[in-house]
Simulated scan of single mutants.
Amino acid sequence: MAIVQKAAPRRATITEGHDADRRRQRLDRGNTRWRTFGSVHPRQGSGRRRELLEHQAPRVSVLSCADSRVPPEMVFDQGLGDMFTTRSAGQVLDSSVLGTLVYGVDAFDTELLVVLGHDSCGAVKAAVEALRTGELPPGNLGYLVGQVLEVVETVPEQETEKAFLDACVRANARAVAEQLRHEPGLREAVAAGRMKVEPARYDLRRSRVEWLDDASGGEGGIPAPRARTG
């Protein structure tokens, strides 16, 4: 029995990434609301729930860390049915995660796939520790840490351990995004211009999403909020 839930018929190729860029701008606006304490929690009322009973069509997919401090729908201030979200510690890819992301492309014509890492990531910290000690944790945890360690081993040393950890967080998000761009089931949509895969980093202290592939080192292009007093 087929399990794929088709949304609408596949549309023409995105013109110069227009739709993906527009959806990223929408995420930027939501993140600005979130970090300035102005979240509006859109599309969560009874009408939206009824609308989604028989059909969903999220054009944005997010692969994020499982960290409880980084819930994507809240970080981007999005509503029900807006994002197809998959979470794993350190954004580690396995067959189940990859199958879920491919499902999003097949079922919902994903236009933007965000790989969302964050500072102080426990999985990345564990991989850095494994690099320093030469030992992996046992069992399934060792598998997870080992996947991140493959990226950590490629990162140049930094002036401080904190800077090295953050460089590893950024490198991991970029590496996962690059792998996804070439993954069977996803690469055709990327090559045809129907989908963009973009790595990002969430800053816990500033509540801000930074897009890692921007030439400017971009942080969404929206000014930071003024410091709150009181």
Score class of each variant (00 low, 15 high):
41 H>L: 00
50 R>S: 08
215 A>W: 06
93 L>Y: 15
64 S>P: 02
67 D>S: 03
165 L>K: 10
9 P>M: 08
159 E>N: 07
164 F>I: 04
105 V>I: 14
212 L>Y: 08
153 E>P: 00
145 V>K: 00
57 A>H: 12
134 G>E: 09
36 T>A: 02
149 L>R: 03
213 D>S: 15
146 G>R: 04
110 T>M: 12
83 M>W: 00
85 T>K: 08
94 D>E: 06
97 V>M: 01
173 A>P: 04
221 G>R: 05
108 F>A: 10
17 G>A: 01
115 V>I: 07
34 W>H: 12
180 L>F: 07
90 G>Y: 08
148 V>C: 02
15 T>M: 09
137 P>R: 08
19 D>H: 13
131 L>A: 12
172 N>W: 03
119 D>A: 04
138 P>S: 13
207 S>G: 14
157 E>K: 12
159 E>F: 00
19 D>A: 11
50 R>Q: 06
144 L>E: 00
6 K>C: 09
118 H>Y: 05
183 E>H: 15
222 I>H: 11
92 V>D: 04
227 A>M: 13
120 S>Q: 13
191 A>K: 09
33 R>T: 02
172 N>L: 09
82 D>C: 00
170 R>G: 05
124 V>Q: 01
168 C>S: 12
101 L>V: 12
151 V>Y: 10
223 P>N: 05
174 R>S: 14
130 A>C: 10
202 Y>I: 01
84 F>R: 10
70 V>Q: 02
28 D>E: 09
174 R>P: 07
100 T>A: 15
228 R>M: 08
172 N>Q: 14
167 A>F: 14
83 M>K: 06
111 E>T: 09
188 E>L: 08
69 R>Y: 14
14 I>D: 12
118 H>Q: 06
100 T>P: 00
176 V>R: 01
59 R>C: 06
122 G>P: 01
173 A>K: 00
163 A>E: 15
226 R>M: 15
36 T>P: 00
24 R>V: 02
49 R>P: 02
211 W>R: 03
207 S>W: 13
53 L>Y: 03
112 L>A: 06
37 F>Q: 07
26 R>K: 14
112 L>G: 03
14 I>C: 13
16 E>A: 12
63 L>H: 06
201 R>N: 13
177 A>S: 07
179 Q>F: 04
27 L>M: 06
217 G>W: 14
